[in-house]
């Protein structure tokens, strides 16, 4: 349980706008990245993130401190992302929302220092392929993969967020990873002993 969170929440509940703003600063990047990997474009990611914080603001009285605040906010954000995907499916055709340019957009915003020399052997193209592969997963797998790899959460916390048993979360992780492995292994055929790989 996060002590700092609870202090801020108590203040926010009492109507302290500064405390609420601090909560937003603490979580905005996490929520924005979650929504971005779930939805694949920055515009919708921003809409969903804004909506997430608006919901937090208006429902803060209903937040139960017995649970972690992060679990609660991730629950709101993942539900809103899934809603958006489903709504989109009925409103637009696939071609309308999948914008090829958008997939590369995030890279230009990337702070370079986050990539060390060792990891730099991973090319943009490979990362982009993983990004697209996640977006091709059905939502129920995409949520789990995003919470695991973008948010770096434990399987236990993921199971609390999505309200599913740990065994189900593990099965979905397995299927998600297998799908992405197949997507990228079509591109890379040779694997040497050290685990490094080359383009075929």
């Amino acid at each position: 349980m996060n002590f700092v969170d609870n202090k801020l929440i108590r203040k926010a509940k009492a109507g302290d706008m500064q405390a609420f703003a601090e909560l937003v600063y603490q979580y905005k990047d996490k929520i924005f990245n979650l929504a971005y990997r779930m939805l694949g474009n920055t515009q919708e990611a921003e809409d969903v993130s804004q909506e997430t914080f608006l919901r937090v603001y208006s429902n803060i009285d209903r937040y139960d401190e017995k649970y972690k605040f992060s679990t609660w906010i991730y629950k709101i954000a993942t539900n809103l992302s899934i809603d958006r995907i489903r709504k989109r499916r009925t409103t637009y055709s696939l071609d309308d929302y999948w914008n090829e340019e958008e997939g590369l957009d995030w890279y230009t915003r990337l702070p370079n220092q986050s990539i060390g020399p060792e990891e730099s052997i991973i090319s943009n193209e490979e990362i982009n392929q993983v990004h697209k592969a996640i977006l091709n997963l059905p939502e129920k797998y995409r949520v789990i993969m995003t919470l695991r790899y973008v948010e770096d959460l434990s399987i236990k916390e993921i199971s609390e967020i999505v309200n599913l048993p740990i065994s189900t979360v593990k099965t979905r992780l397995l299927r998600g990873r297998e799908y992405i492995r197949k997507e990228i292994s079509n591109k890379y055929t040779t694997v040497d002993r050290s685990g490094k790989y080359e383009m075929s």
Partner: peptide
């Protein structure tokens, strides 16, 4: 291949939140 997949997944870079995000909110 799975280990490579895992590594790539873990290296998905963070995207920066629009700078006016908090103000808009």
């Amino acid at each position: 291949e799975l280990k490579i997949t895992e590594r790539l997944l873990k290296q998905l870079p963070m995207v920066s939140t629009p700078p006016d995000f908090v103000q808009k909110l």
